[in-house]
């Protein structure tokens, strides 16, 4: 049997890889993918805890996270499209209208 720590470690590793991706990449689309990865890492630890405690609440929470992720992706990608139409670029370093 794999101990619960195995799942939690994989989840922590995936989360830090997601953070690394968000900070290292400049393409808005890949940054969104890394945000999805971070949400998934948290989902994994929620499922592991739900199994550990024998309580379905964690899995219901995962269900809600999935719905929020779907909403976030649809709005975010619409923003990327609107951005590309105006700027002809998805490089987040070139979007600095609000930087004084």
């Amino acid at each position: 049997m794999v101990p619960a720590g195995g799942y939690l470690l994989v989840s922590a590793l995936l989360f830090s890889l997601g953070v690394m991706g968000v900070l290292l990449r400049r393409s808005a689309i890949v940054m969104f993918m890394c945000v999805e990865m971070m949400l998934n890492a948290v989902n994994l630890s929620l499922v592991a805890f739900s199994r550990l405690l024998g309580d379905p609440t964690g899995q219901v929470l995962v269900f809600f996270v999935m719905c929020v992720a779907a909403a976030e992706v649809s709005v975010g990608l619409a923003l990327v499209i609107a951005l590309f139409r105006n700027r002809e670029s998805i490089d987040v370093d070139q979007i600095r209208l609000l930087r004084g």
Partner: peptide, 15 residues
């Protein structure tokens, strides 16, 4: 890290 998952049928039926 070392905690193991409960093996009784009720805990296994959570998902």
């Amino acid at each position: 890290l070392g905690a193991s998952f409960p093996q009784d049928p009720q805990a296994q039926a959570v998902g």
